[in-house]
Simulated assay, not measured.
Amino acid sequence: MNKPYNIILILVLIMNIVMGVALFKQNSLLIEYKSKINELEVKVEDLDDVVKERIVSGLREISNKDNWNTRNEFTKNRKVILRVMEDPSLRAGKSFGYIFSFSEPFETFNRKELAIYAYHKETGNKITVVPPKIITDPSYGYPSLEHFTATFIIPISGLWRYEVEIDGEFYADVILMVKK
């Protein structure tokens, strides 16, 4: 009678050892999977930042190009980053002055290439109104580019989108009506 119990006890002991080894392996796999999941969560957070910085701003740029409502300021993250003051008597074919008032700190522009292009809604014509130039100094008398002036001629009347680029990338735009 002791013999069958001994065999059963040995079998139970062997099963406990096998189960213990299996649980140990499962635990180590779970720890490894948890580590990999944590790494993926970090990568997803990085991806979220990329989406917010690049994709959302790209979509905003595309959306702005389709929206031709006149506006003399551009808002980013609920803050006006560009305001354009044009001559109230702005007319096609004549030289007029503009003040591009940038509200971001000078470090945003320092040693970067700034260019401004104008796009006509009806014809799609593009003109360079401020050729690409490296910014090395703030506006005279200001700590940033709060008073960036430009004088140029818009050749035909209608709606024009003035697009500011920094280092060849979209920065901001405004839509102005140029009269005949």
Rank of each mutant, 00 (worst) to 15 (best):
Met15Gln: 14
Leu145Val: 02
Pro105Ile: 06
Val129Lys: 02
Tyr162Cys: 03
Ser144Arg: 01
Met19Phe: 13
Ile17Gly: 04
Ile31Thr: 12
Tyr119Met: 04
Arg161Glu: 07
Met19Tyr: 11
Leu29Ala: 10
Asp49Ile: 06
Pro138Thr: 01
Lys112Gln: 00
Ile37Pro: 10
Leu13Ile: 06
Pro155Ile: 00
Val51Thr: 08
Leu47Ile: 04
Glu53His: 11
Val12Arg: 14
Ser103Gly: 05
Pro155Asn: 09
Gly124Ile: 05
Glu122Asn: 12
Lys65Asn: 10
Lys179Leu: 08
Phe96Asp: 14
Lys121Asp: 03
Asn27Ala: 10
Ile134Phe: 07
Ala115Leu: 06
Thr108Ala: 05
Ile175Lys: 07
Gly141Thr: 01
Ile55Arg: 00
Arg54Asp: 06
Leu23Ser: 13
Gln26Met: 11
Arg78Phe: 11
Val12Cys: 14
Met15Ser: 14
Thr149Glu: 10
Met1Ala: 11
Leu59Ser: 04
Gly97Met: 09
Leu90Trp: 08
Leu30Thr: 15
Leu40Gln: 13
Thr136Leu: 06
Ala22Leu: 12
Lys94Thr: 12
Ala22Ser: 11
Asp173Gln: 05
Arg83Lys: 13
Thr70Ile: 11
Tyr33Cys: 15
Ser89Lys: 15
Ser28Ile: 13
Leu23Gln: 13
Gly93Asn: 12
Val178Met: 05
Val50His: 03
Ala118Trp: 00
Leu114Trp: 06
Thr128Asp: 09
Ile154Ala: 07
Ile10Arg: 15
Glu107Trp: 06
Glu73Gln: 13
Glu122Met: 10
Asn125Lys: 15
Tyr33Thr: 15
Gly158Leu: 04
Glu73Val: 05
Arg60His: 08
Leu90Arg: 08
Ile135Phe: 06
Gly20Phe: 09
Gly93Trp: 10
Thr75Gly: 09
Val56Ser: 09
Val84Glu: 08
Tyr98Met: 14
Asn27Val: 12
Gln26Thr: 15
Ile175His: 02
Thr149Ala: 05
Ser28Phe: 03
Asp66Leu: 07
Gly97Thr: 09
Phe24Arg: 11
Val50Asn: 03
Ile62Tyr: 06
Phe170Pro: 00
Phe106Ser: 00
Pro4Asn: 12
His147Tyr: 09
Ile81Gln: 02
Glu61Ile: 09
Arg161His: 07
Asp173Lys: 03
Ile156Ala: 12
Ile116Pro: 09
Phe106Glu: 01
Phe170Ala: 04
Glu104Leu: 08
Glu41Leu: 14
Arg161Phe: 02
Arg71Asn: 09
Thr70His: 10
Val44His: 08
Tyr140Ala: 08
Asp49Val: 07
Ile127Gly: 00
Ser103Ile: 01
Gly158Arg: 02
Lys112Ile: 02
Ile7Met: 13
Asn77Tyr: 07
Ser63Arg: 07
Ile175Leu: 05
Lys65Pro: 03
Ile62Gly: 02
Val42Met: 13
Tyr33Lys: 15
Glu163Asn: 04
Arg60Glu: 07
Asn77Trp: 05
Glu45Asp: 13
Phe170Trp: 04
Leu82Thr: 05
Lys43Ala: 10
Gln26Asn: 13
Asn2Cys: 11
Ile81Arg: 04
Phe148Ile: 01
Asp46Trp: 05
Phe148His: 00
Phe102Trp: 04
Lys3Leu: 15
Asp167Ile: 04
Pro131Ala: 06
Leu40Ala: 11
Asn2Gln: 14
Ile8Cys: 13
Ser89Tyr: 12
Val12Phe: 14
Thr123Glu: 02
Val50Asp: 03
Pro155Gln: 10
Asp173Ile: 00
Asp167Arg: 01
Ile55Trp: 00
